[in-house]
């Protein structure tokens, strides 16, 4: 079995709830989320070989997108 694809996000920069929402969109790749102290770890266990390089980039963009959208929605205008 291939090693899971691992990503680490600083929770001071990426909102954990937003990462979770982003992970739902990537459900097909078998995400699981681990809360570490300063970071949130996301592991993808079902990633086809041809996508192993690209998935971290695409998911990271999506996680950042979701963090910013959620923050904007809640921010005073």
């Amino acid at each position: 079995m291939a090693e899971p694809v691992r990503l680490r996000f600083s929770r001071s920069l990426y909102a954990p709830a937003s990462i979770a929402r982003a992970a739902e969109r990537f459900a097909a790749f078998g995400p699981s989320i681990v809360d570490a102290e300063a970071d949130v770890l996301v592991l993808f266990s079902e990633v086809p070989e041809r996508l192993r390089d690209r998935l971290p980039d695409e998911f990271s963009n999506h996680a950042l997108f979701q963090t910013i959208v959620d923050a904007r929605e809640q921010a005073p205008q």
Binding site: S12, L13, S60, L64, F65, I68, A71
Partner: peptide, 28 residues
């Protein structure tokens, strides 16, 4: 401020991959 960095980052998401990390306190 972080929201300023995020505001800039958002505009680049379609063109490139953007990663933020915290190498030290008050540094992004």
């Amino acid at each position: 401020a972080l929201d300023t960095i995020q505001g800039a980052a958002y505009l680049f998401l379609d063109r490139c991959y953007v990663f933020l990390d915290r190498p030290a306190d008050r540094r992004v």
